[in-house]
Simulated scan of single mutants.
Amino acid sequence: MSLHVAQIAHSTRLQQVSFTAKAGQFVGIIGANGAGKSSLLTAITGQLMPLHQGSVHYNERSVLHMSASERRALFGYLPQSPALHGDISVSHFLQSGLVNLPAANAGRDELTRVANLLAITGFLPRPLPHLSGGEQRRIHLARALLGDQPWLVCDEPTASLDLHHQLKVMALLRSFADNGKLVTAALHDLSLAARFCDKLVLLHEGRLMACGEPAEVLSEANLARAFAIKARWLCTEQGVALLPTLLK
């Protein structure tokens, strides 16, 4: 199982990106605001069409030539800003996500599985709009996990989460990669990206600046150019932390 994204050119925000990934990897997409992270994820999942140039391939098949049902079977997708669904319960919201899944993955057991993964069972009877932003983010992530697809694509999965749940979600995504999924996520927290990801794709003004292992991508020169910061890293057995200083 492999991914190849090549020569993507759709807008001034996302002009050209090329990289490969494989099953069992957690790939972090990083970059400053407006660098093209969300555009890249929507291109990968076939939502940004037609591309002016380039292709996205999975197991040598073009994602852009797959049917909508084939893409649903391939991707679990968490958008940056999920659509509002009115004053419905969390349970009904999750059940609505089962509709488009294959029958084998659309039962009550699947809903129970993801509710347990995200520890949201207690939220099921509550109205979705009444939950906090962080709680809603966990609900939307649970919906993205319905179907247990082989490729999980998340746009800022830790947005609005407290520190405890940021670590829980990142550890969960890491476990999916360790068990054979391809996980691709746009991330703002570089410390979390360095700690949990196998590979980082650094975007700058819509173009690929660097791609590789975290230690290689998060170099002093790359951070200065992409984020206008000077970085000091604290490294322990438990993880890493970034202490940034503004350059301008």
Rank of each mutant, 00 (worst) to 15 (best):
R61N: 07
S62G: 04
S62R: 07
S62D: 14
V63C: 04
V63D: 03
V63T: 02
V63M: 09
L64Y: 09
L64S: 02
L64F: 05
H65Q: 15
H65M: 07
H65D: 14
H65G: 02
M66P: 10
M66I: 12
M66Q: 13
S67Y: 11
A68K: 15
A68L: 13
A68E: 15
A68F: 13
A68T: 13
S69W: 11
E70Q: 14
E70I: 05
E70G: 10
E70A: 13
E70M: 04
E70C: 03
R71F: 08
R71M: 12
A73P: 00
A73L: 11
L74V: 09
L74C: 08
L74M: 09
Y77E: 01
Y77F: 15
Y77R: 04
L78M: 13
L78R: 06
P79E: 10
P79R: 15
P79V: 06
Q80W: 10
Q80A: 01
Q80N: 05
Q80P: 03
Q80T: 08
S81F: 15
P82T: 03
P82C: 12
P82I: 08
A83L: 11
A83W: 12
A83R: 11
A83P: 12
L84Y: 14
L84Q: 15
H85R: 11
H85I: 03
H85L: 04
H85T: 05
H85C: 06
G86A: 03
D87P: 12
I88C: 09
I88V: 14
I88D: 03
I88M: 07
S89R: 12
S89A: 08
S89M: 04
V90A: 02
S91W: 09
S91N: 12
S91H: 09
S91I: 01
F93N: 02
F93K: 00
F93C: 00
L94E: 07
L94M: 08
L94P: 01
Q95C: 08
Q95Y: 05
Q95P: 03
S96K: 10
S96E: 05
G97V: 00
G97I: 01
L98T: 15
V99N: 00
N100A: 08
N100G: 12
N100W: 11
L101E: 05
L101A: 06
L101H: 06
P102N: 04
P102G: 10
P102F: 14
P102K: 08
A103T: 07
A103F: 07
A103R: 14
A103Y: 13
A104Y: 15
N105P: 00
N105I: 02
A106E: 01
A106D: 11
A106S: 14
A106L: 04
G107S: 13
G107D: 02
G107Y: 10
